[in-house]
């Protein structure tokens, strides 16, 4: 049984994939997986891959007047503009990030959807902490793709100045200087849910840059200082390292098979 699904004893099947070269296809594969897990064709699955440069817009972004300008800006920066089926606003990722799609069948898939944000957010924060980062859960003022349960990291210098740091379950007051390290979003269908996350580990500069242009075009608020990567805080952190730590963190919660 896992924290986020007390009703399930089923192991989580690890599915590491490479990027196909087609960002839209890679994104769609997550939705396909959701359908397969729902129908029972596939077991509960943890899918991980390092994506090609992609700007994943939320469906709501598409209706904004600045959308086509934003999509052009993304393409000009080498980030393929695609529209994702999970919630949230625009997010950018590339080879220095890890996409994690956690999919499980659920009889009442909406039950606990916010709790999943909290619990999995905390799991991801603890993963980052195991790599030496000072990570926590909470919305960062001015972050891209804002959410109450974003996972952020703090520079070492912020350690002494913050009032209530340390690992805490649930959102905390995010101290100044925090950067977003993991964005989380879900797609919930009758019978299953997809919890999709972007871990930004390496090379945050292009992400910061393209998000600045995109959010500017969309007319949405964004503070570029909040977009970071794990290696900005702990130099030398790699996607491979993060991937290993994440699998280890999951393995503490339930059985992981495959991979």
């Amino acid at each position: 049984m896992s924290l986020w699904n007390p009703g399930s004893e089923a192991p989580l099947t690890l599915w590491r994939t490479g990027a196909s070269g087609d960002p839209a296809e890679d994104l769609h594969a997550g939705i396909e997986l959701l359908g397969q897990v729902r129908s029972g064709e596939r077991p509960p699955t943890l899918r991980m891959y390092r994506p090609e440069p992609t700007l994943a817009f939320g469906q709501r972004d598409v209706r904004l007047p600045g959308y086509s300008a934003a999509a052009e800006a993304a393409a000009a920066a080498g980030f393929a503009p695609v529209v994702r089926k999970a919630g949230g606003r625009a997010a950018a990722y590339h080879r220095g990030t890890l996409i994690v799609d956690h999919v499980e069948p659920a009889a009442e898939a909406m039950m606990g959807h916010q709790e999943r944000f909290r619990i999995l957010g905390e799991l991801y924060a603890s993963t980052l902490r195991s790599l030496g980062l000072d990570a926590g859960v909470g919305e960062i003022p001015g972050e891209y793709c804002p959410g109450e349960y974003s996972v952020h990291g703090l520079p070492a210098a912020a350690e002494s100045s913050r009032e209530a740091g340390g690992p805490r379950p649930g959102p905390r007051v995010v101290p100044a200087g925090a950067v977003k390290l993991v964005g989380t979003a879900q797609r919930v269908v009758a019978g299953a849910w997809l919890f999709s996350s972007v871990f930004v580990v390496e090379d945050s500069a292009p992400i910061r840059s393209v998000l600045t242009d995109v959010y500017d075009s969309l007319g949405l608020p964004f503070d570029p200082r909040t977009a970071g990567a794990a290696e900005d805080l702990v130099p030398g952190t790699t996607v491979e390292e993060l991937e290993r730590a994440l699998v280890a963190a999951y393995a503490l919660q339930l059985e992981i098979v495959g991979g």
Partner: peptide
């Protein structure tokens, strides 16, 4: 499809 608090719901 409706969206609430970063959950897209079908």
């Amino acid at each position: 499809e409706v969206e609430t608090a970063k959950s897209m719901v079908e």
